[in-house]
């Protein structure tokens, strides 16, 4: 098991958003997190990468346990070095070119020599099919291209797991395909991914596990075939029915 989360709790003021969430991710897993809007999916990912601080919970990464309520800066730094995050709205560094976006974390955070970082960066851009856009700034790229650069940026640092928060939700329908196909390639290469998504096709065909959340709790976690073909919980069935109607 590469990542295990136990009993994670998070409130914003009086609003309890995560009410004790458990989650397990094995090496090579592609886990899709599904659930209605406001169920706490984004908050869960953000807590696992410390963009928000959970009030309680335990996290085991690579067999190393951490207490989320008293995590230290140093531990956060060490954990972030092994993970990467792809945001819904890309969050590319606006003052950097595509290539610089990809190499920044290597050169600045990991002190990789520049020539080596550029080589890694070019490979990562090639992987997402954007070698010819290396010198473009984000403002000169389409949404789909920006998100692919963001995926290249995530790949460049060699993470053990990549978190995706609705990577295609901000995209026009005709652009989601190019991003999903890059993610499918990564899945086939065995990249471990935790993906919040509304793309049922991706959850069904690419991910091997599905976690269904509602109101800050995990309602059902199952292998994706099982999840879609024989859901155990009634709330899951209701959700799937609602999705099919759309």
């Amino acid at each position: 098991m590469i990542l295990e989360v136990k009993g994670i709790r998070k409130s914003f003021g009086a609003l309890e958003v995560l009410k004790g969430v458990d989650l397990q991710v094995d090496q090579g897993d592609v886990v899709a997190i599904l659930g209605p809007s406001g169920s706490g999916k984004t908050t869960l990912l953000r807590c696992v990468n410390f963009l928000e601080y959970a009030q309680a919970g335990r996290l085991v990464f690579d067999g190393q346990p951490y207490d989320l309520s008293k995590i230290t800066k140093k531990e956060i730094g060490a954990l972030r070095r092994k993970t990467a995050f792809v945001f819904q709205n890309y969050n590319l560094f606006l003052n950097k070119t595509a290539l610089q976006n990809v190499t920044e974390g290597l050169i600045v955070a990991r002190k990789t020599p520049k020539a080596q970082a550029v080589e890694i960066g070019q490979k990562a851009l090639a992987k997402v099919g954007l070698s010819d856009r290396a010198d473009y700034f984000p403002s000169q790229l389409s949404g789909g291209q920006q998100q692919r650069v963001a995926i290249a940026r995530a790949l460049a640092t060699g993470p053990e797991i990549i978190f995706f928060d609705e990577p295609t939700s901000a995209l026009d329908p005709e652009l989601t395909g190019e991003v999903l196909s890059v993610m499918r390639d990564l899945a086939e290469e065995g990249m471990t991914m935790l993906v919040v998504t509304h793309e049922m096709g991706f959850a069904r065909n690419v991910s091997n596990k599905v976690v269904f959340m509602e109101d800050g709790v995990v309602v059902e976690a199952a292998p994706s075939k099982e999840f879609f073909e024989s859901p155990r919980s009634r709330r899951t069935r209701d959700f799937l029915q609602l999705i099919q109607q759309e």
């Binding site: 070095r81 995050f85 945001f87």
Partner: peptide
């Protein structure tokens, strides 16, 4: 922008 910086380890 700041969050993206954190996430690449900066």
């Amino acid at each position: 922008q700041l969050e993206a910086g954190y996430c690449v380890g900066m």
